Simulated scan of single mutants.
Amino acid sequence: MNVPLDATALASAQEEPFVHPALFYRGSDEYLAGCLSFVREGLAAGEPVAVAVPGPNLALLRAELGGDAERVRMLDMTRAGRNPGRIIPGVLRAFADAHPDGHVRIIGEPIWAGRSEVEYPACAQHEALINLAFTGRDVTILCPYDVGALSPEVLADAEVTHPVVVDGDGRWRDSPAYDPDRVINGYNRPLPPPPDHAAQITGDVNTLGAARRWARAHADAAGLDEQRIVDVELVVTELLANSIRHGGGAATLRAWTDGGALVCEVTDRGHLSDPLAGRRPAPSGQAGGRGLLLVHHLSDLVRVHTTPDATTIRVYLHP
């Protein structure tokens, strides 16, 4: 039987305190109805509330909230979450960890009609990984999906990555398709091959400096400014260092441009067995464990394909 959405009631009705509903909306009226009720319930209860959605939707919510918008942490997801891999540590965990006492509410909309086919697999995996990252936490993360603009395949994936679906009338239902591992593993696919003109070198512990200079040269040739060139150097250095430590001691590095972005790829003989690697904030005082976190933070997109025999990490960096 359907009942009105109430995140607190839903959490109390199940043993797991983490609640992760998908909001299926059509048009601005349904969007505002679903999101505003969620935000206002939280504010009325004195709960910390954050909203991370694309800019136009953020403007809609801000206008409707009026003065209450000042009580909500509001982020443009097209910026904060351009790379889906940095949403968990940089948006969701950053807010939840800042409010460790009591229930926390977050609206996160990482998938919108403008997402490219290259980005989407990382977006879907992100939605699935939220369940692993927040199990046991007293947090509700509501994820809106525009049913009028997104494909049936995207909506079907949303039913797999969310245990609860909220329909446009504001009522929720359990999702029988819920199985986040299916999306995590299903989108762990071989990446499209690099173009024939991609530059390639082999890196190991003796060639870290040369690899850094190689990365700088390709970033400069791609027209990136000095700050982004430094970002590329750091990303390639961290990926190669990770391959040296965990991937058999050496890696193949490739670079090319794609639609204005510099694409860098590192392939080694390691296996990335932890799907949340690079998505957990590093505890204060911990030595190491920040390499992949930094890669996600600096990159505009990170795609991964891993098997027991090899791992490829491909990063996109825009000017």
Rank of each mutant, 00 (worst) to 15 (best):
V3W: 15
V3M: 13
P4W: 15
L5A: 00
L10N: 09
F18K: 00
V19Q: 15
V19A: 09
H20S: 12
P21T: 04
P21W: 11
A22W: 04
S28P: 12
D29L: 00
D29M: 02
E30P: 03
Y31F: 15
L36C: 12
L36F: 05
E41Q: 14
E41F: 03
E41M: 10
A44F: 00
V51R: 01
A52L: 01
G55I: 00
N57M: 05
L58K: 00
L58H: 01
A59C: 01
L60S: 13
R62Q: 13
E64I: 01
E64L: 02
L75Q: 10
L75K: 01
M77C: 14
M77H: 05
M77Y: 01
R79S: 14
A80S: 11
R86I: 09
A98E: 15
G102Q: 14
V104E: 06
V104L: 10
V104N: 06
V104P: 04
I106K: 01
I107S: 03
P110L: 11
A113H: 03
Y120N: 02
C123H: 11
H126A: 12
E127T: 07
N131V: 04
L132P: 13
A133I: 06
R137I: 02
D138A: 14
V139C: 03
T140W: 00
L142D: 10
G148K: 09
E153H: 09
V154R: 09
D157S: 08
T161K: 04
V164G: 08
V165S: 06
G168L: 12
D169I: 12
D169T: 13
R171Q: 12
W172L: 09
R173Q: 09
D174H: 13
D174C: 06
D179M: 11
P180H: 09
P180T: 01
R182W: 06
N185Y: 00
N185G: 03
N185E: 07
N188W: 04
P192W: 13
P193D: 12
H197M: 02
I201V: 15
G209N: 15
G209Q: 06
A210E: 15
A211Q: 03
A211G: 07
W214A: 02
A215D: 04
A222D: 04
Q227H: 12
I229R: 09
V232I: 15
T237A: 08
T237W: 05
L239F: 08
A241H: 06
G248D: 10
G249D: 11
A250E: 15
A250G: 09
L253Y: 06
L262V: 00
V263P: 05
T267Q: 05
T267A: 08
H271G: 04
S273I: 10
D274E: 04
D274M: 02
R279L: 07
Q286V: 12
G288Y: 13
R290G: 03
G291M: 04
V295M: 11
V295N: 11
H296K: 06
A310C: 06
R314I: 11
R314A: 05
V315E: 03
V315P: 15
